[in-house]
Design a protein around this nucleic acid. Structure first.
Lengths: 225, 225
DNA sequence: GCCGATGCTGAAGATCCGCTGAAGACGGCA
DNA sequence: TGCCGTCTTCAGCGGATCTTCAGCATCGGC
């Protein structure tokens, strides 16, 4: 399990690294907000321990920027016992949990484990393909930041293709998965919906994310077309 | 904050329910171990008040089975002053805290609050979505600073949507969470309440925070509409 | 270039889904 | 018990959405 600790007190940071490593975590450190943000966006961490008071960029900022960048790591914030602390703000910026200093190391480990467990079972929700974003949880789709309204069927088809981005998916499979219908249904139904989909997510943007694989079905380009 | 009280003395259980409800908790009762275990595994409680001496299945058993089932609710055990009581055993089975009878109600509330804080409910007390504020603890809702009176059901629906702000939530799920009803109940009930909600929090302000996701349910706009 | 197979697309009718007003049921409270 | 606010059920409306169909375009092999 990979953990990033963003903490400016070096003694504490080192102690955490030693302790967490002994508990079986793989630990990286950052000592200020900017470095933390950079590392977190470069590497895929399971959980991030984030101090609120940081030089450069404070914890709230790091947290909201991470979420804006689409990170789905678990984030646990550390609050100084006397510092100003706004629980609502923290959770609003996308933190998953928090712990006030001074804290028990055992509690920290327990919380990190619980957090990782929670994050792990959280269904993957956003698929990013170039400037095309498919968000299964929100049931939204955006191209270059522009929201696109899709009907239920259209979204279901797109979602299914997105989960196998880059692979060719047969009409048969789409029919079974999206329509949960028997193998004797009309593949033309799929064609009609694919057509509608292209008219919404490709044509207006001069792109071609939905590709026809003759005889084999369709493929959603991994780079968004 | 959701609390489950598992206590076989009905008078005491009722008194706890009244008192805790007045303190802003959402309280459910169970009068024996098996029922308590069933309820606790079915619903996500933040904390569970668990009597040791219970008909059917005693508190220790309930506690260890809950933990075995992966529950991460806070558990506070109640011990009779004369009953045999093994603190080590209690904590071994996964209890977080304990209190011996007779106890002061004020102390119980304080312990429950501390416990909930320690366990770290990730549910924000207040959810801020643009100028729409939903306060789960106070059970109030304001839009642009104006207080809005909601009926219990309306608030429960809004609260549930707010906890998943930005995500599409199915009518089915709303029915299960807000009504804790079976999957065969009428989704139209939800529609009626959604309609009432919109008439109160959206229409008068010319906004559209409550969005219909055709075929999938509803979504509360993360920016308040 | 021809041909069959395969895929695309516009139109139209049928269907499904969600919204809403009203009526009655229910429950708390005096 | 009667009142009042709230909840659920019902039925109809209106519109979005789905499917079917038919004709046309495109592709690949010859």
């Amino acid at each position: 399990m990979r953990v990033l600790v963003v903490e400016d007190e070096r003694r504490l940071a080192q102690a955490l690294r030693l302790g967490l490593t002994a508990e079986g975590f793989t630990v990286d450190l950052a000592h200020d907000g900017l470095t933390g943000l950079a590392r977190a966006t470069d590497h895929a961490y399971d959980v991030i321990v984030l101090d609120i008071m940081l030089p450069g960029l404070n914890g709230y900022r790091v947290c909201s920027r991470l979420r804006a960048a689409g990170s789905d790591a678990g984030i646990l914030m550390l609050t100084a016992k006397d510092g100003e602390w706004d629980e609502a703000e923290a959770l609003d910026t996308g933190a998953d949990d928090y712990l006030s200093k001074p804290f028990s190391f055992v509690v920290l480990v327990a919380r990190l484990r619980a957090l990782a467990r929670r994050i792990g079972t959280r269904a993957p929700r956003r698929t990013v393909l170039g400037d095309l974003v498919v968000d299964s949880a929100a049931r939204t789709c955006t191209r270059a930041g522009t929201g696109i309204a899709l009907t239920p069927r259209e979204f279901a088809v797109l979602d299914h293709l997105a989960r196998r981005a880059g692979e060719a998916v047969s009409k048969r499979e789409i029919l079974e998965q999206v329509w949960d219908s028997g193998p004797d249904s009309d593949p033309n139904t799929v064609e009609v919906h694919i057509s509608a989909l292209r008219r919404k997510i490709d044509t207006p943007f001069g792109r071609a994310a939905v590709q026809t694989v003759r005889g084999a079905g369709y493929r959603l380009a991994a780079d968004g077309g």
